[in-house]
Design a protein around this nucleic acid. Structure first.
Lengths: 235, 235
DNA sequence: TCACACAACTTGTATTTACAAGTTATAAAT
DNA sequence: ATTTATAACTTGTAAATACAAGTTGTGTGA
C-alpha cells in the first residue's frame, strides 16, 4: 500500500473524502495548484489523479471554474437496488459472506464459455447474501479466474464489496459485460436463503463482467427477491 | 475539426483504424515512441490519446509489452431476446399491434415523473405483442409524448419496429435510459395475453428511454415470459 | 544443449516549464 | 448606476526530460 504511486494515493484520498461527504456534493474541490502545494506534487500528477475521478464520475471539471463534486448513485456492480421511494443507501445494505473465496476447479456445467487462460488458471469461488433492512434480498454466486490475485482468498471480506476489493488492491476495473435475465420459481435452497413465502417468484440473472485485465472476467449468478425492491439500472 | 487538440486528432485516427479493422484484434498498436515519431508529438500527448482509447475499452495496455487492440465493445444495451441456444434472429420474431398508436391524456397513475412540456403535449399510446416461433413472449405498453410527430398515429406499423420508425422518419435516437426489473406473478389479463400456465412468473420491466430530442422520452412497461427465453443485454 | 545475464525494447511515473482558454470579481470609465 | 476592461484566478494543452519497471530476444558461459 505504501508503494502506491503518488497520483493514486491522492486519488484514493479524494475518492474517500468525496464518498464520505467531506467534500459536499456540488461544491468545488481545491484547485489543482492548491492540491499541488498541499500534497507536494506537480500539476501533471495531480491532474492524473483528477482524471481518474472524472472517469469514475465523481467529479465534473469545468475549465476556468474548477472540479465540481458529484456523488453518483451507489451500485452493486452494474445494477443497483431501488427501493419503493428512491435508491437505497449503503447504510441499509449488509453483506454476509456465505462462502469465503476459495480456489476450486471450474464447475463441469457452466453457463458461460471460458477462454483457455481462464480454464488453466482455475477459479476462485465465493457466495454472498445481501440484506436490506435486515431482510435477505440478494444472493449471488461468483466465479473468477485465479489469475494474479495473490492473497485474495485470505483477505477479510466483511463489510467490503468484492468490486471495491478488486479495484483497490488489484486495479481491476469493470469495462462492460453481458447478462441474461429470467423470472423463476426458486428451488428450496434459494427459498430458504432469501426467506421467501410460498410461490414467490425471484429474478434470476446470469452475468459476465469484462474487466481491464486480459482474460479476467467475473461470472455471477444472482437470485433476487423483487417483492419489495427492484433491480435498477441505467445505461 | 481543424482546431482539435493534437491528442484528440490522434485518438480519432486510431479509433477509426481500430474500428475499421486496420489494426487487427489482438495485435499490438505501434509503440508510443513510434507514434511520437510518426505524428510529430511528444510522449505525454500520445499517452493522452491512448488513455482515451483505454477508457473506451478499445485497447489494453501492458507494461513492457505494448497496447493490445481489443474488439469494439458491444453496443449500449437495449435489451434483446436470447433463446436457449443462441440469439434469436429477427425472422423468428413476429410483432402484433394490439393497440395502434392513438393520442390520449397521460394516465393518472404513472410510474415515471414527467416534465412540464411532456405533460402539456399529451401522449401517444400503443400496445404490442411479440411472438417467437408462434408463441407470445413479450407484451409491451408504450407511452410517448405527442411532440413533433406528424402522422405518427396514421403510419402503418406492421413488421416495423417502433424505434426504427422513430429513427428513420423523425430522427429520434436513443441516448440512454433507466429501467427497473421485477419478477412477478402476472394477473389474469397478462396470463391470457402471454398464454401462460398457472403460476408461471413473468419478468416485469418499467423502462424510460432518453432520446436526442428535448423532453422526448419513451416510457415502456414490459411483461416477458422467460420460461423458454431470456432477456439478454450487453453494456 | 541449457541456463543465465544482459541489452534493447516496451509502458509507468514524475518533474519542470510554458502558454492557451474559460470564469469571475474588481476597478475604472461612461 | 451601468457598462466595460482588466487582473487574477481556474482548467486545458503541450513540450522536453529523466528514470523506474516489466517483457523479450540474444548471446555468452557452463
Amino acid at each position: 500500500m505504501d508503494n502506491m504511486p503518488q497520483y493514486r494515493k491522492l486519488y484514493e484520498l479524494l475518492r474517500k473524502n468525496i464518498l464520505n461527504g467531506i467534500y459536499e456534493e456540488g461544491s468545488l474541490l481545491p484547485s489543482e495548484n492548491e492540491l499541488c502545494a498541499v500534497h507536494g506534487m506537480t500539476r501533471p500528477t495531480v491532474r492524473h489523479a483528477l482524471d481518474s475521478l472524472v472517469k469514475d464520475g465523481l467529479i465534473i471539471k469545468k475549465q476556468g471554474k474548477g472540479s465540481i463534486v458529484r456523488k453518483p448513485p451507489q451500485n452493486i456492480g452494474i445494477l443497483s437496488i431501488a427501493g419503493t421511494a428512491s435508491a437505497i443507501g449503503v447504510r441499509y445494505l449488509r453483506t454476509e459472506i456465505l462462502q469465503k473465496p476459495e480456489i476450486r476447479p471450474w464447475p463441469e456445467e457452466f453457463p458461460f464459455e471460458l477462454s483457455e487462460p481462464e480454464k488453466e488458471a482455475g477459479c476462485i469461488y465465493m457466495e454472498r447474501l445481501r440484506f436490506v433492512d435486515g431482510q435477505p434480498v440478494f444472493y449471488d454466486i461468483n466465479h473468477l479466474p485465479n489469475l494474479n490475485l495473490p492473497r485474495l482468498t485470505s483477505r477479510s471480506f466483511e463489510n467490503k464489496s468484492l468490486f471495491e476489493m478488486l479495484r483497490k488492491h488489484y486495479q481491476v476495473e469493470i469495462l462492460g459485460g453481458e447478462q441474461k435475465l429470467k423470472a423463476i420459481i426458486p428451488d428450496r435452497k434459494i427459498k430458504r436463503l432469501l426467506n421467501l413465502r410460498n410461490r414467490t417468484p425471484v429474478l434470476y440473472i446470469e452475468r459476465k463482467l469484462i474487466t481491464n485485465k486480459e482474460a479476467f472476467n467475473i461470472y455471477s449468478t444472482i437470485y433476487f427477491n423483487s417483492e419489495k425492491h427492484s433491480i435498477y439500472g441505467s445505461f
